[in-house]
Design a protein around this nucleic acid. Structure first.
Length: 285
DNA sequence: GCCATCATATGGGCCCTTCC
DNA sequence: GGAAGGGCCCATATGATGGC
């Protein structure tokens, strides 16, 4: 997890906040088009296409990108595009979805994922996705929607993983107009670093605001706008995730963990832990 | 976009008792 | 002895609102 002093990139943030992430599929359908088909659209949510057959040219601004059969196309919200088929029939699955934390439904905007992901690195995940989709379509499983969501979560996670490994970087523009006015996660980078260096100490919002170079009140508003949670909620979740890890390691007493996480005593830590996990730390593992 | 004020809610420190 | 749980109280965080 977090190493003291090490910068928190958006992927590390996703990992640390994974308990709180929500992925909501708004629509998942297949489409078939003959050559000559074209559409110009702007979506209000994330949109992924899994191309089964044929190829599609996607124009965004002045640039044109070609997706071939097997590729995945990832669109970010509010980005106008024109898609058109080439020779022969084109078949693809499209998925509209939200991916976020709390009120913030566009948490992926901090990562350059929008673009055409070569299918080679996604073969297993796409296969599972198609299988789950087919089960839902044929109503073979009573929990098909849940399986589809699981498969799609794996697929999105794999795209993020490819980006993290340096094997893929999206080339489509991907910022919401509203967010382009703000500085996003990058301006909170000093705050994440500050928090990571001091998880063993009590942290005050005022200190974090100073680290960000903002007034305390504006910092809270800005933080919540960017991450969908308040600074104290973020720190609380971070500490609880760390507490869980320490307990799994079985190397520390409750008292030691309380101290490692900046709690003045084990009572306060225990109270916080139970409020979060609904189980006292002694019974957690 | 940024900041200030104010009322209210909440977290956390401390202490004590109880339980195992 | 270590940990849980509850009560009280205070400091701090937060939300609402409005101004520049």
């Amino acid at each position: 997890m977090t190493t003291a002093g090490k910068p928190v990139n958006p992927i590390r943030f996703l990992q640390e906040m994974s308990d709180q992430l929500t992925l909501r599929i708004r629509a998942c359908l297949e489409d078939t088009h003959e050559s000559g088909w074209s559409e110009s659209k702007v979506h209000s949510d994330y949109d992924v296409w899994l191309l089964y057959e044929g190829s599609i040219d996607i124009r965004i601004g002045e640039s044109v990108h070609r997706a071939e059969a097997g590729d995945l196309v990832f669109y970010y919200p509010h980005v106008p595009y024109t898609a058109s088929t080439n020779e022969g029939r084109t078949r693809f699955m499209f998925v509209h979805f939200d991916f976020g934390i709390g009120d913030q439904l566009r948490i992926l905007d901090s990562l350059p994922l929008a673009g055409i992901v070569p299918g080679g690195g996604l073969r297993d995940e796409i296969s599972l996705m198609r299988q789950s989709y087919e089960q839902r379509r044929s109503r073979k499983s009573g929990i098909a929607d849940l399986k589809l969501k699981g498969a799609f979560t794996l697929l999105v996670a794999r795209v993020i993983e490819l980006y993290e490994a340096g094997e893929y970087v999206g080339v489509f523009p991907g910022r919401l107009p509203r967010q382009s006015r703000s500085k996003g996660l990058s301006s909170l980078q000093p705050v994440f670093e500050y928090i990571n260096r001091r998880t063993h100490l009590p942290l005050r919002t005022k200190e974090l605001a100073d680290a960000a170079g903002l007034s305390e009140k504006y910092f809270i508003t800005y933080f919540k706008q960017t991450l969908g949670m308040t600074p104290s909620q973020y720190i609380y979740q971070l500490k609880m995730n760390k507490a869980r890890e320490y307990l799994y390691q079985r190397n520390y007493s409750i008292k030691e963990i309380a101290s490692l996480l900046g709690y003045p005593d084990p009572y306060s830590f225990s109270k916080s832990f139970k409020a979060y996990f609904h189980v006292p730390p002694s019974q957690f593992v």
